[in-house]
Simulated scan of single mutants.
Amino acid sequence: MLSKTKFLLPVVAGALLLQGCDKNKDQFYTTADGLTYKIYEQTEDGEYENKGEVAPADSTGAKIGQVVTMQMSYQNAEDSVLFDSRTQKQPVMIPVMEPTFKGSLEQALMMLSPGDSGVFKVNADSLFAKTFAQPMPPFIKPGSQLTFFIKAEKVQSKEEAMVDQQKMMEQQMKDAQAHAAEQIKIDDQKIQEYIKENNLENVQKTESGVYYVVQEPGKGPQAATGDLVSVHYKLSFLDGKEVENSRSNPMGNGEPFQFPLGQGRVIKGWDDAIQQLKEGSKATLLVPSTLAYGEQDRGPDMPANSILRFDVELVDVEKQQ
């Protein structure tokens, strides 16, 4: 979480930061290295005002080796928001490193003190080539700039940041558990309604909460934790919309999906439900969102809190020593 790779995150929608900035002092400045910026500091009455031009010798910002905890969003030249930490429900923690190029994001962090908010324009080509060390995605035009909106909450030593990070993770886990406890009740009710509406018979339920119906019992060995299993599947939502099918998936060449069972390599609902089947079984699994992808919004093809239906065939069970 404290590595550079934290910069590059999935594309999500979100509101921009800094909406409370003083619009009457909305002037940008540019450093000698080519970093375009405007930085706001909070006044005694709680308002934000433009700090103006930052002197090259100013050393009040974050130092190399320190970690900045911040709320951050950034957008491309078409003003499409590519990331917003507020939608992730946790701030971003980024270590301050030696600048990778002139006008870099590292330089931007070194201009911020705790409580400051800043808007920075960074060359996209250099950012991806030298900071991210990754190819530039097609939705970012060569030669364009990315605009970063940053609210610096803390500037700490690496040791202090690691302590805060641990506390943050513990709180996040508690919040997730509380949400899951409520969400599984909601999902369970929806699944029961779906079963009734679709006249599903011989429905069974695992201890964790996955409903399943075995259409064709298998005659092979029972799947168990540690087995290497191969499964054909069709994934759909409860409204019938198909999302994925292993038999028509070009990435898998139409082959069944193979994985070690009970090792956390798949969603929890699969690790649980596949163990209820014997080799050769065909079944329908109704997986609550808390045992699938939970609160994760994986784009339009997989919204947050999605209940999933899998029509599966357990093709092979390979027992492991």
Rank of each mutant, 00 (worst) to 15 (best):
N24S: 12
L146H: 03
M1C: 02
S236P: 11
A161I: 05
P300L: 06
V229D: 02
L82F: 08
H232L: 04
Y212W: 08
G20M: 04
M173D: 07
S246C: 06
P303V: 13
A180Q: 07
Y194G: 04
E201V: 15
A15E: 12
E159R: 04
E279P: 05
L314M: 06
L16K: 10
E53F: 08
P95M: 02
G220P: 07
F259W: 14
D84Q: 11
V12C: 10
I274D: 05
P135D: 11
M97Y: 04
E47N: 15
I184F: 04
Q172W: 10
D79W: 04
M169H: 09
E47Q: 13
L9S: 15
T30Y: 01
E279C: 09
L18V: 07
S144K: 06
P135I: 10
A124F: 04
D271M: 08
I150E: 04
Q321A: 04
L16G: 05
Q215I: 05
E49T: 13
K241R: 14
S144P: 05
S236C: 13
V266T: 14
K268N: 08
P114E: 10
Q192R: 15
F83I: 01
K154N: 15
E313W: 11
S126E: 11
P221R: 07
A178H: 00
D187S: 15
D116T: 01
N198T: 03
G143A: 12
G220H: 05
T290S: 10
L2E: 09
D175A: 13
K63W: 07
A178N: 04
D311R: 01
K234W: 02
V92E: 12
Q88P: 03
I186S: 05
S73Q: 13
M97C: 12
K51N: 02
F237N: 12
F120Q: 01
L9K: 15
Q42N: 00
Q258F: 03
G14P: 09
P303I: 09
A304N: 05
D271R: 02
Q204W: 01
P10Y: 09
E47M: 09
R309I: 11
K278Y: 10
L314W: 03
Y293R: 15
E279I: 13
Y194M: 00
P300N: 06
P91D: 08
A152G: 03
A273I: 02
F237G: 15
D239A: 00
T60E: 12
R247Q: 13
K38Q: 13
F7C: 00
R309T: 02
K51M: 10
L9F: 06
A224S: 12
R309F: 00
S73Y: 08
Q134D: 03
V92Y: 08
G65L: 12
L2T: 07
I191P: 00
P138A: 10
K196Q: 15
Q177V: 07
D84R: 07
L235Q: 08
D45M: 05
S85M: 11
V96E: 06
T31E: 03
M70H: 01
I307H: 03
Q66P: 06
L18H: 11
I191Y: 02
G299H: 14
T36V: 14
P260T: 14
N76D: 14
I274K: 01
